[in-house]
Amino acid sequence: MAGFGEPGATPVEAAGLTVGVVAARWHGDLTDHMLDRAVAAAQACGARAVTARVAGSVELPVVAQALARRCDVVVALGVVVRGTTAHFDYVCRSVTDGLTRIALDEGKPVAHGVLTVDTLDQARDRAGLPGSAEDKGWAATVAALDAALALRSVAVGNAQPVGFAG
């Protein structure tokens, strides 16, 4: 966790959009809260939330893909804590590659709200609990909705010009 540079997670106006949220049950004390925060963020933005649960983070991408086919955005939530084997690396790579592929293949925002941490204390500090430094369930949902609005703007030709043209 860098602890700096986050753009903020102020609700966006996303009425009419549907957010698919899939959360792992592994480390359920944290992911249950993250799921609640993701649903609250969707509601604060005027969007509707659809939720699904899976056993662990490796299972997130396949359900995220199903949600991407019927929702405007997807948020994947989980907690992966580094252990003493290479398993952490395999899980993190698999989840990240899978979620990225789904976003590109489906052309929809898929927020990576999977906490990849060295300790449970680091996870607690990012899970949006009272006193946490970050709230990844909320932030991932707002970011995904913001990206959906940007895609909508690009699709209708309202993208803001950038660069040196003028």
Rank of each mutant, 00 (worst) to 15 (best):
R124C: 14
L115K: 08
T116H: 08
W138N: 01
G137Q: 14
V142F: 09
A144K: 14
R126E: 05
D118M: 06
T119C: 05
V142H: 14
A133W: 15
R124P: 07
T141Y: 09
A127H: 03
L129V: 04
A127W: 10
A111G: 14
P130V: 08
K136E: 03
A127C: 05
L129R: 15
D135G: 03
D121Y: 06
G113S: 10
G113P: 02
A127R: 04
G128K: 12
D121E: 15
V114Q: 06
A143G: 12
L129P: 02
A127D: 02
W138S: 05
S132Y: 00
L120I: 14
K136A: 02
L145S: 06
A127Y: 08
A143S: 14
A133P: 08
R126M: 13
A143Q: 13
G128N: 11
L115Y: 02
K136D: 04
A144L: 11
D135K: 11
G131A: 13
E134T: 02
A139V: 00
D121S: 12
K136G: 03
G113T: 00
T119M: 07
L145E: 02
Q122A: 06
T119K: 12
W138H: 01
G131Q: 03
D118H: 09
V117T: 15
A140N: 11
H112M: 15
A139S: 14
R124F: 13
H112A: 04
A144I: 07
A111W: 00
A140C: 09
L120N: 12
E134M: 04
V117H: 13
T119W: 04
W138L: 01
D135Y: 11
R126T: 01
A139N: 12
G128S: 01
V114H: 02
D146R: 14
E134V: 00
V117K: 14
G137Y: 12
V117R: 15
A139G: 11
V117Y: 14
G137T: 11
V142Y: 10
D135A: 11
H112Y: 13
A111F: 02
L129F: 02
W138E: 00
R126P: 09
A139Y: 07
Q122C: 05
T116L: 08
D118V: 11
L145K: 11
D121Q: 15
R126L: 10
S132M: 02
A123I: 01
G137F: 13
L115M: 12
V114P: 08
G113C: 01
A111C: 09
D118I: 11
S132Q: 05
G128C: 05
H112F: 15
L115E: 06
L120C: 09
A111T: 05
L145M: 02
A133L: 15
A123W: 00
T141A: 01
D125W: 01
Q122F: 06
S132E: 04
D146Q: 14
E134H: 08
R126F: 08
V114C: 03
E134S: 10
A143F: 04
D125A: 05
T116E: 03
L120S: 08
E134C: 06
A123D: 03
S132P: 05
A144G: 14
L115I: 07
P130S: 03
L129C: 04
E134F: 03
D125G: 00
A144Q: 13
A144E: 12
L129E: 08
L129A: 10
G113V: 04
S132L: 06
E134N: 10
A144Y: 12
